[in-house]
Design a protein around this nucleic acid. Sequence first.
DNA 1: TAGTGGTCTAGACCACTGG
DNA 2: CAGTGGTCTAGACCACTAT
Lengths: 257, 257
Amino acid sequence: MTASDRPSQQPASRRIADTLRASIERGELEAGQKLPSERALAEQYGAARNTAREAIRLLAEQGLVTAKHGRGVFVREPQRLFRFGSDRYSIANRETGLTPFRLEAKKQGKVPRIDVLSITREVPPPDVAERLQVPADSESVVHRENHYFADDEPVQIVSTYLRWEEAEGTLLMQAKSGPNGIYGRLEELGHVMTRVRDEISARMPSPEEARVLDLLPGVPVLEVLHTSLDQNTEPFEVSRYVHRADQTGLLYELPVS
Amino acid sequence: MTASDRPSQQPASRRIADTLRASIERGELEAGQKLPSERALAEQYGAARNTAREAIRLLAEQGLVTAKHGRGVFVREPQRLFRFGSDRYSIANRETGLTPFRLEAKKQGKVPRIDVLSITREVPPPDVAERLQVPADSESVVHRENHYFADDEPVQIVSTYLRWEEAEGTLLMQAKSGPNGIYGRLEELGHVMTRVRDEISARMPSPEEARVLDLLPGVPVLEVLHTSLDQNTEPFEVSRYVHRADQTGLLYELPVS
DNA sequence: TAGTGGTCTAGACCACTGG
DNA sequence: CAGTGGTCTAGACCACTAT
């Protein structure tokens, strides 16, 4: 009757989870296959349904399974990664007239879509102000917020910040910013991208990000805080990329001096 | 009596979580501060304890709070990131005689420690075999597994793979591989590191990784699959880094051609 | 010892999916 | 419609922490 009629040292939910995980890893339960229902598991292990449910939660937390409401719990399919390479900034790629994301999508045979959510003058977040070298206490930047899709699946949220003094009254304030996108316009303003600085971290998504990116539980996000430096090593653009980590990765190839 | 005596559209657990999150974000609940107990929250919101508990689980999943058994639930302290820069591969840094990790730790005023777990001849994992250009069906590599600590806190798990034919009978098979570590020995073998290729992804840790890295629930890991290329663009070393994402980040600074 | 989170039980109703 | 996961209740005992 008590929680441990056999003092197994491990909680019952943990034992059930471990058994299921072993099945998955041995390939007895293949990707896409349905697990026994929570009620079936509970009966099978002589436990309450909540205990079986807890076991499944443990597996979902590790990204091994996914629950579909009304259908069942399924072994998650391994996802091929949509990989963003460091050559996405390369000028050689600029000749196509495509922006980096459209280029990367084309390369991988996907149909890109970019939704421009807003283009507004704002007070910059502290980390952005520091990197763009603008005041953090006035409306010193233009914030362009975009959502990127590949084959209509949300892939990343991008917030781009530019100096207000440079963007005011230019195509940088427009959704369609012309050939080569904003980098084309910034080049006309005298900023040739010479170096980039990407600061990378991983974390769990906020509820808002989980909603926009349509994230399943147990899927983290990759955050890239990107700074573009010009020929004078002056920062002229800062962007925050939030990628879904189950479908995207990053690739950096660089020379060692 | 029913689950929704007020049809609030949101589950009760979600509403409780949202209220608590708002408190945290407004700063009413500061970092390190204790939340009301599960039993107190349940009474306060007229819900069962399990419902309050579910609300706290939602917050923990987002990395906002941490439960301490027997003590309470606390608002998580923001962690300063231990950042690994792409200059960690730089030859300029090689003159110190320190390995990249020791160098990075010193820079940040931390005491590094490296535990060498094993150095064994093995069949390489498929992704490693592909990048190191060795057979995936024979014991073609040496696998060095290390755990890295900063101030005695586990920071990363590193698996380094080298060609068996090159490592056999050399210092590369020893825990102490001499000045400048394995890169020093590999240079003597004629491999000058000229380019590096880092493939980055984020995911939730396996139970084993969570144990070794002492990870709290809701903390993802950053995985870097690193390839070193020599003066002939030949790969000569592949490493898999698994970082805890709550305390470490990555930094890449590179020229744009 | 009292208070906390960790786990579990044995129910219940709801929301969603599919035949 | 039956079967599934999603949420919730009102208890219970255990394990850990502090006093």
